[in-house]
Nucleic acid binder design. Structure first.
Length: 229
DNA sequence: GCATTAACCACAG
DNA sequence: CTGTGGTTAATGC
């Protein structure tokens, strides 16, 4: 079921900021060393423990980055389109230290790791954009980590709902792409606690739930819960 | 003590 | 896969 096809990097309308800095020659090199593949919902893009292959650029869809912990699987972050995943593999680790799975139908552009490294070495602007990406990502991760560690479950769930509405869907009415159990893995809670917290939000008129459909009715209150727990 | 929080377990759609 | 309810251990007045 692999659908690898080639296309023109030069005319790609959704280039990353980094690739935007490349000249024609570099784009041609990139072109020869990348390929697109579409993943279905719940399909594994790469798995923790398997051999590392390429750097991946998410063109469309939604991806979860997750890792097996001592107790259970944890979703470390969700990646929306026009971002790279797997850059850390450039360190040269033989095995992936974490997994990436499509949670919606996702289109990925693979870039050969050695070519990626070569572009960084040969083009300072390209390297700079990649560093910027990694820095922003780290800041975001710190932010999320501290919130996860210091808030209790209502606050963590409120954070997640606001994240989906504001960052992922830009809409207060959306279809939750994660199962209850996955949502639990995302906010470090059990699926039962997620359900309980959700019904409590519903009871208080903060949200409306119909299966996977979620409508945020009272955003100010939800933000207050996010802040105070 | 008593209340709250959240995990664990079991059972039912 | 979800929702619910009872139980339970930890924590905080």
């Amino acid at each position: 079921m692999e659908t690898i096809m080639h296309y023109s990097c030069e005319t790609c309308p959704i280039k990353s900021c980094a690739v935007e800095t490349l000249d024609i020659e570099e784009l041609l090199i990139l072109q020869k060393n990348c390929g697109v593949r579409v993943f279905k919902k719940n399909e594994t893009i790469f798995q923790q423990g398997s051999l590392t292959s390429n750097i991946a650029y998410i063109k469309s869809g939604l991806v979860k980055i997750h890792k097996k912990g001592p107790v259970k699987d944890q979703i470390l972050k969700l990646i929306k389109p026009l971002r790279f995943i797997g850059i850390p593999t450039i360190l040269g680790e033989r095995l992936y230290q974490y997994s990436a799975t499509a949670i919606e139908s996702t289109s990925v552009c693979y870039i050969d790791t050695d070519i990626f490294r070569m572009l960084i070495l040969g083009n300072g602007k390209f390297g700079n954009e990649i560093i910027n990406e990694l820095c922003k990502d780290e800041i975001r991760f710190f932010e999320r980590s501290i919130n996860q560690m210091q808030k209790q479950i209502h606050g963590r769930l409120a954070d997640a709902l606001l994240f989906f509405a504001n960052d992922i869907f830009q809409n207060d009415h959306f279809r939750m792409p994660l199962s209850r159990s996955e949502l639990g893995d995302f906010i470090h809670a059990t699926r039962e606690s997620v359900t309980r917290s959700m019904t409590s939000f519903k009871k208080d008129g903060l949200i409306e739930i119909t299966g996977k459909n979620i409508v945020i009715l009272d955003k100010p209150s939800l933000m207050r819960v996010s802040k105070t727990g």
